[in-house]
């Protein structure tokens, strides 16, 4: 059984797509018995989802052309 500190240290690995089944099982069994860590896991997951779901900032108008013309001058 993981302690809360060990749970925190395993969080990164847990969110890794290639996480070992063993780590997943350990983390999941910890959060089933520890409501605070359940909340931390849930809100961390949502944090990552919300950032991944953001559309990238549109490129400022004219930036591409400015880069290209600066490159042309370097030729």
């Amino acid at each position: 059984m993981l302690t809360c500190k060990e749970f925190l240290n395993s969080l990164n690995e847990y969110f890794d797509d290639n996480a070992a089944a063993e780590i997943r099982a350990l983390v999941e069994s910890h959060i089933n018995t520890c409501p605070n860590c359940w909340v931390i896991l849930d809100t961390t997951r949502k944090t990552l989802q919300i950032y991944k779901g953001m559309e990238p900032q549109p490129l400022p108008p004219g930036l591409h052309d400015r880069i290209m013309s600066a490159l042309d001058k370097r030729k």
Binding site: L8, L11, F15, T43, T44, K46, T47, Y51
Partner: peptide, 20 residues
């Protein structure tokens, strides 16, 4: 990288929890 990533994730979670 791993330790910075964990701290970054937890700090962002903390900030967003204050709002959400």
């Amino acid at each position: 990288i791993k330790s910075r990533l964990l701290r970054a994730r937890l700090k962002l979670r903390e900030t967003l929890t204050g709002i959400f």
